[in-house]
């Protein structure tokens, strides 16, 4: 795996094909946990961590177990089980070692299991036939892309809650979606970016 390849995967995952703004993966936590910048940051870090771990473990499960046994049609089921186990593990780890973050994330921590960004990154790794290193890089940078998006969006929302005067029907979710749309429009600017 050449350095250029890694850089292009990384740039692609963070900016050009950002998981949220261009692939629509992980919208639920993106809209749900973006009221405050601190919790958004914690959520983004937790998701990045799980995505990296999930990429590694699912790659291992796929190459060492499913492919040799001819069970590739069980991919979806196997992946979701791996992810659920990982999230459980992260939850126990956080509870023991960083209880403050554990409490801040609350209900959203177990919900990482059903974050489509996590399952999405794993499925995309398989679909694109990435090798071990590329999978890891894609997992980590995809998570960073999620982190960047959710922190940016949380800052916008914090500001908006304080100052905006929006029509009654647009209060809450609709206005959040519209502002996310405008952010996505900004991220479209990266689509012209080419690596080497």
């Amino acid at each position: 795996m050449s350095l250029t390849g890694i850089v292009s995967i990384a740039l692609g995952a963070i900016l050009i094909e950002n998981f949220i703004f261009s692939q629509f993966l992980g919208i639920c936590p993106f809209l749900g946990v973006s009221r405050k910048v601190d919790t958004a940051l914690g959520m983004g870090l937790a998701v990045t961590f799980v995505m990296a771990l999930a990429s590694v473990f699912c790659w291992l499960v796929n190459t060492l177990l499913l492919v040799p046994l001819g069970l590739t049609y069980m991919q979806t089921v196997a992946y979701i089980l791996v992810i659920a186990a990982l999230v459980q593990f992260v939850e126990m780890f956080l509870k023991k070692s960083i209880p403050s973050l554990y409490q801040a994330l609350g209900i959203y921590l177990p919900l990482i299991t059903t974050n489509c960004a996590v399952l999405g990154v794993v499925l995309l790794n398989t679909q694109k036939n990435y090798d071990f290193l590329s999978s890891l890089v894609y997992g980590v940078t995809g998570g960073i892309g999620f982190l960047v998006a959710i922190v940016l969006f949380a800052s916008v929302r914090e500001r908006m809650d304080l100052t905006s005067d929006c029509p009654k029907s647009f209060e809450g979710f609709p206005i959040a979606l519209i502002s996310a749309g405008l952010l996505a429009l900004a991220f479209m600017g990266f689509s012209g970016l080419k690596v080497f």
């Binding site: 261009s22 009654k168 029907s169 647009f170 609709p174 749309g181 479209m188």
Partner: peptide, 25 residues
């Protein structure tokens, strides 16, 4: 064209939910 792009997804759904909230209210 931008409506078929990701941006359009956010904007269309936002307006639809707003419409729904308006009607329910």
């Amino acid at each position: 064209t931008f409506l078929v792009l990701p941006v359009g997804g956010f904007l269309t759904l936002g307006c639809l939910i707003a419409l729904m909230q308006y009607l329910l209210r």
